[in-house]
Design a protein around this nucleic acid. Structure first.
Length: 358
DNA sequence: TCTGGGGTCCTAGGACCC
DNA sequence: TCTGGGGTCCTAGGACCC
């Protein structure tokens, strides 16, 4: 745990980069991968914009309709997850060879613990450089790499210079690196926390680091203490090889909001059919079923029910999911999204599911 | 701006048990 | 008779991440 050397690798504009590699005619054009744009009327958000599209102000998670207004001349593509997964798997295989411990995060990121194969940050930099070049030579895709003494620093470092960047933050430079960064860069600080911190006069990580810890604990509880440690560059989170899934589910936003019970119940059936395959092939049993609905005004609710004994039965999910949905249907409100998820998982034999949060 | 879909983790109240 | 305290499970909601 002391004196660790951790790398974070982030594949640059991954979905868009894969599309450009597949279709050379996209070169030089703004490429936006995400929901169906429908000529500016589409629902949903941008998954990835390439660097040219970013010059127009297009960003990940932005409503696709806004992206269309900013960049009507862009090439809009629906994501091809099967392709991305294949390319990702090849790259992860390359990266894995460089690590003592390897942790994939999502489809396009990974942490590497390299403390055993490298004696200092200079050696780590050389290793990172070699790794980047191998990925580029073999897969024709670029990644940005950050190196630091823990996951927090490594991740912020990989984000510091992009694309195809390499940033090494030695322990003695950590404070100077962290202090000027906006607090929003910290993992776990989202839009809501950012606003609360701003009201306390906290804008940068440096501001947060010197802020009174007790006040943060009063306001944010346990998270207040954690946030204060992160701001001071303290992160003991280990690189871990693999996780067990905690829940499995599907959800869908309707093309048009609906209050038609027939459509809603049919949709539940098809969502459940989809992920039940996964449950069987992974040897998963579940105890709790949760239904999620989102009304047209974006108000979101869940209902859940736990069984006495774990099961893996298709009919059980369908029957209970529908029972849980009924109270939402008696109100004559239009529904935007419906989802079904199972949790309280146990696994038959020694089968484990790899972490899959794509 | 009008907000996807896959997830994780945390909080808080109430039931229930000892 | 006039009310303890700790632990665990269930349910609902919310913030956040990629």
């Amino acid at each position: 745990m002391i004196n660790r050397i951790i790398m974070h690798v982030d594949l640059d504009a991954f979905f868009a980069a894969v599309e450009e590699k597949e279709s050379p005619e996209l070169k030089g054009k703004p490429v936006i991968v995400g929901a169906d744009s429908k000529g500016g009327a589409g629902r949903g958000v941008v998954s990835t914009a390439n660097y040219i599209a970013r010059e127009f102000g297009v960003r990940s998670a932005m409503p696709i309709s806004k992206a269309w207004r900013l960049c009507p001349e862009g090439v809009y593509l629906r994501p091809n997850f099967e392709l991305y997964e294949k390319v990702s798997a090849k790259i992860m295989e390359i990266l894995r060879k460089y690590a003592d411990k390897f942790e994939q995060v999502g489809i396009d990121e990974a942490f590497l613990d390299v403390g055993k194969r490298v004696k200092d940050f200079d050696e780590a930099a050389k290793l990172a450089d070699k790794m980047k070049k191998e990925v580029f030579n073999k897969e024709k895709l670029t990644c940005s790499v950050g190196v630091g003494s823990n996951k927090l620093i490594a991740k912020l470092a990989s984000d510091f210079r992009k694309p195809y960047g390499l940033t090494v933050v030695k322990s003695e430079d950590m404070r100077n690196f962290l202090n000027p960064l906006p607090v929003r860069k910290l993992l776990g600080v989202g839009p809501k926390t950012e606003i609360k911190l701003k009201k306390l006069g906290i804008k940068t990580i440096g501001d947060l680091a010197k802020f009174n810890k007790e006040t943060l604990i009063k306001m944010f509880g346990k998270w207040g203490a954690e946030m204060h440690e992160l701001a001071n560059g303290i992160d003991n989170d280990e690189v871990v090889e693999e996780y067990e899934a905690k829940s499995v589910g599907r959800e869908v936003t309707f093309e048009e909001d609906t209050d038609d019970s027939y459509i809603i119940l049919k949709t539940i059936d098809s969502l459940v059919d989809e992920f039940h395959q996964e449950i069987l092939s992974e040897g998963i049993f579940f105890k709790t079923i949760t239904v999620k609905i989102r009304y047209e005004n974006f108000e979101t609710h869940t209902h859940s029910k736990s069984l006495i004994n774990p099961t893996n039965k298709l009919d059980a999910i369908k029957k209970i999911a529908k029972e849980l949905t009924l109270p939402f249907l008696t109100q004559k409100r239009k529904i935007r999204l419906i989802g079904v998820r199972v949790s309280g998982l146990t696994f038959s034999d020694k089968q484990k599911t790899l972490k899959e949060k794509f």
